[in-house]
Structures are given as C-alpha cells and as structure tokens.
Computed example of a mutant assay.
Amino acid sequence: MDLKDHIRTVPDFPKPGILFYDISTLLAHPAAWRECVNQLKTIIAPMKPDLLIGIESRGFLPAAPLALELGVGFTMVRKKGKLPGECISHEYDLEYGSDIVQIQADAVKPGQKVVILDDLLATGGTLRAAIELSQKVGADVAGAACIIELLGLGGRDGLNAPFHSLISYEI
C-alpha cells in the first residue's frame, strides 16, 4: 500500500504559499493507518526502546498506538504550560524568535532508551529541541521518526539521533 495515496495536500494552509500535508485522511482509512503503524513498528522495534515520546500534538498520533504495539511506555513533549506537575524546559530558536518545549520531570528515567516521533519533519527545529530535551533529562535517544519528511528544507541536518521517515516529498 502506498501511504502517499492517503495523504491530502491543502494549498495555502496555514498561510498563503504553504502546501500542508494532512494526515487526517490517513487516520480516517483503517487499513492505511494500520499499514503506517506497521511500517513504523518495523523501523523502531529493532531500536528496542523503553519509551516512545510523541511531540505535540500530531506526534502523539503515531507514538501512542505504536507504544501499545511494541509493549513500551509513551510520554509527551509539549509546548510550555501544557503539562501538569513539575516540568523540565528547553528553549530553542525558531526562524524568527524562540519557543519552549517541556517534558514532565518524572517522565523519563535516566538511561532509558527512547525514540521520538512526530507526524512531519520540515525544518527540524522542534524535533531537534525534543531530542535535546530528552538528552537533558538523561534519556538515551536511540532514534527519531516521522510519517512524512519534506526534503530540501534541511530538517535532518543537525539531528543528534538516527532519523527515519516513511514518506518524503521534494519541496
């Protein structure tokens, strides 16, 4: 099954000139979604993670069911102020300005092997920040994966972990 057949493109979203790759249509097709999770499982299972980390918010979609499939835990990296309890923060630079991501202080035990997931890799800033935050709390980042990778934006450059994607588009 070609997963690209189940990705909808939406021109000029969220602003003019952007072509948005929408996984909603993939999620709505049970066989395609199962195939997506199976493909991710094939990539990630050999890494033998203890925990999967999903990046807010669409990264939760592949990470949570995949954690169940692999029999491992799941936790979240979210924007500042979205997680209860004590959190560890990491500030990172954006093209214009900065942002902060957080993880709950007790979400990862030092030395736990983790894999970080998101739906899409574009410029890589948020994934890079999630990797750095995970390392900051003592995780052993075995890898990172996304459903979609937009080639030509340099997203893989500077990632401090092995990276895999299921689908790629030239930009």
Rank of each mutant, 00 (worst) to 15 (best):
M1E: 15
D5H: 13
H6R: 09
H6K: 11
H6F: 15
R8V: 15
R8D: 15
T9D: 09
T9F: 07
T9R: 12
T9E: 15
V10Y: 08
D12K: 07
F13T: 05
K15R: 14
P16D: 13
G17S: 14
L19P: 04
F20W: 06
Y21S: 02
Y21A: 01
I23W: 02
I23S: 00
L27T: 08
P30M: 06
A32N: 05
W33A: 15
W33I: 09
R34P: 10
R34C: 13
V37M: 13
V37Q: 14
N38W: 13
N38D: 15
N38R: 12
N38H: 14
Q39T: 07
I43T: 12
I44T: 05
I44R: 04
I44P: 01
A45R: 11
P46A: 01
L51R: 14
L52A: 00
I53L: 15
I53E: 06
G54A: 09
G54T: 05
I55A: 01
E56R: 03
G59A: 07
F60K: 04
L61Q: 08
A64T: 06
P65F: 09
P65I: 08
L66I: 08
A67T: 02
A67F: 02
A67L: 03
E69I: 01
E69H: 09
L70Q: 06
G71A: 11
G71Y: 07
G73E: 14
G73V: 09
T75C: 13
M76W: 04
M76I: 10
V77Y: 02
K79V: 12
K80C: 09
K82M: 12
G85L: 04
E86N: 10
C87E: 10
C87D: 09
I88C: 10
S89W: 10
S89H: 13
S89C: 11
E91D: 12
E91P: 08
E91W: 06
D93F: 12
L94K: 12
E95L: 08
E95C: 05
Y96S: 07
Y96H: 13
G97C: 12
G97P: 07
D99H: 11
I100W: 04
I103H: 04
D106F: 05
D106T: 07
A107M: 04
A107F: 03
G111C: 09
G111K: 08
G111Q: 11
Q112Y: 12
Q112S: 15
K113C: 10
I116S: 02
L117D: 00
D118S: 08
D118Q: 09
L120Y: 02
A122G: 04
A122R: 00
T123D: 03
G124K: 00
T126A: 10
T126H: 10
A130H: 02
S134L: 05
S134D: 09
Q135Y: 08
Q135S: 11
K136P: 06
V137K: 08
A139D: 05
A139M: 01
V141Q: 01
A142C: 14
A142Y: 06
G143D: 01
G143Y: 02
A145L: 03
A145Q: 02
I147A: 04
L151H: 10
L151A: 14
L153A: 00
G155Q: 06
G155S: 11
R156P: 01
R156Q: 14
D157E: 15
D157P: 00
G158I: 05
G158K: 04
P162N: 15
F163H: 01
H164C: 07
L166P: 05
I167D: 00
I167V: 10
S168T: 12
S168I: 01
E170C: 06
I171C: 13
